[in-house]
């Protein structure tokens, strides 16, 4: 029983990490309608930025969240402006290959600049473990849980209440109609991609103390992030959050009770079942809105 509760706690913590990484992907997919295969590499870029700020200026990983979020916002806008925008009316496959190419290029750039070794920020305060009722969590994991709830809630409020948020939702619903209503769709795309990347920037500041940066670190997370986004119904923030929690719990429990190397099998099986019975995801908006 003790182990079971620890596994649940662990799964929730894992889920919040998946959530915070997946939110940006949901936003980019939901609005720009581009499957961004370079999402994991954005995380990698963010993590190296956090490491550099830590190593050169002694900045605490949490303090580096501010510059890294700004950096990734700009990087996201640049990707949208110079890679996605010229291909906006091209075939979907071409957009996908453009992001796959970007992903490969970024991994190899990191290999060139940093080599294959891992770099780790040291943040003993974040890695301190807290014990309650015999269960162990890290301070950093609790922070991640809080931050992911705030981020999802904040983004939701932003989308519902602000003019920009409404414009983003309008563009997501119907690009042409939004254009006719006077929404500058190109700019909305720029901002949305930027915001999506900025979310990854926040994620990288929170993940860095728990996970060392390597050129391929993005690939560890990106597949799970896609599962989370599809499970959540592609465009729903709350859906992504719920999807992340489900994957986190399944991950943790199946690794213990079944086998550590079979956990992917278990959660992909669940994923396929959900897609069979509810093709638009758990929180999808119905057929045709994907």
């Amino acid at each position: 029983m003790d182990v079971f509760i620890q596994l649940i706690v662990n799964g929730i913590m894992l889920g919040s990490m998946y959530a915070i990484i997946s939110v940006g992907l949901t936003l980019i997919f939901g609005v720009v309608r581009v499957v961004n295969f370079a999402h994991g590499e954005l995380l990698m870029v963010g993590m190296y930025a956090v490491y550099l700020l830590f190593a050169k200026f002694g900045l605490h990983p949490y303090a580096s969240a501010v510059p890294v979020v700004i950096l990734l916002f700009c990087l996201g806008m640049a990707i949208q402006r110079f890679i996605i925008q010229p291909l906006l009316n091209a075939d979907e496959h071409i957009q996908i290959f453009a992001t796959v190419g970007l992903s490969t290029a970024l991994v190899n750039l990191a290999l060139m600049l940093f080599g294959a070794d891992l770099y780790s920020v040291s943040a003993p305060d974040v890695r301190r473990s807290v014990t309650f009722a015999g269960n162990t969590v890290l301070v950093g994991q609790l922070v991640m849980l809080g931050a992911s709830i705030l981020l999802v809630g904040g983004l939701h409020a932003f989308m519902q209440t602000t003019a920009l948020g409404r414009a983003i939702r309008a563009t997501a619903q119907n690009r042409n109609a939004a254009l006719l209503m006077g929404v500058r769709v190109d700019r909305i795309y720029l901002v949305s991609f930027g915001l999506g990347a900025a979310c990854v920037g926040l994620a990288s500041a929170l993940v860095s103390p728990l996970f060392p940066a390597t050129p391929t670190v993005g690939t560890y997370f990106v597949l799970t992030a896609f599962v989370v986004v599809v499970l959540g119904g592609m465009r729903s923030m709350y859906g992504a959050f719920a999807g992340a929690m489900i994957i986190g719990l399944v991950d943790s429990l199946s690794a213990y009770y079944i086998a550590p190397d079979l956990k992917e099998v278990v959660y992909f099986a669940i994923f396929i079942l959900i897609l069979i019975f509810k093709p638009t995801g758990l929180f999808g908006f119905g057929r045709g809105t994907e």
């Binding site: 182990v3 596994l7 990490m17 560890y220 799970t224 943790s252 213990y256 086998a259 190397d261």
Partner: peptide
């Protein structure tokens, strides 16, 4: 004997099994 993926982001379940 516990195999796991080198791309795992969490080995806690492995460790809990060793511990128990």
């Amino acid at each position: 004997t516990l195999p796991y993926s080198a791309k795992s982001v969490d080995l806690t379940p492995v460790i809990l099994r060793l511990k128990s």
